[in-house]
Amino acid sequence: MALNRTDVEKIAHLARLQIDDNDVPEYAQNLSNILDLIGQMQNIDTSDIEPLAHPFDAVQRLRADKITELNQREHLQSVAPAVANGLFLVPKVIE
């Protein structure tokens, strides 16, 4: 399966990754090779096989509805790139 420039650009956009124009052919080649590797799976008949999402049939544990996390805003925001008035700042969002 060969991916072209448009495919790579579309995937990179979905994943919000800036890819240098010059690097696109290499990514296209790498990704195509990986998809060829992955293509080996397609020869296997799995029509009756239930997908396995987790190694065993464990079930979700439930947490009591009790407050365990108190305000740690200053501490948690100490690693934020841009903060004002307790808010995280990002470039203007246009809706």
Partner: peptide, 28 residues
């Protein structure tokens, strides 16, 4: 970036069954 792109591609519309679901079946 390569792996993010492979993963993004594998989960994207129209490919989920052929890639992700298939892989989970192989996993079993």
């Amino acid at each position: 970036k390569r792996r993010i792109m492979v993963g993004t591609y594998a989960l994207s519309e129209g490919f989920y069954d052929a890639y992700y679901k298939k892989a989970q079946q192989i996993r079993r």
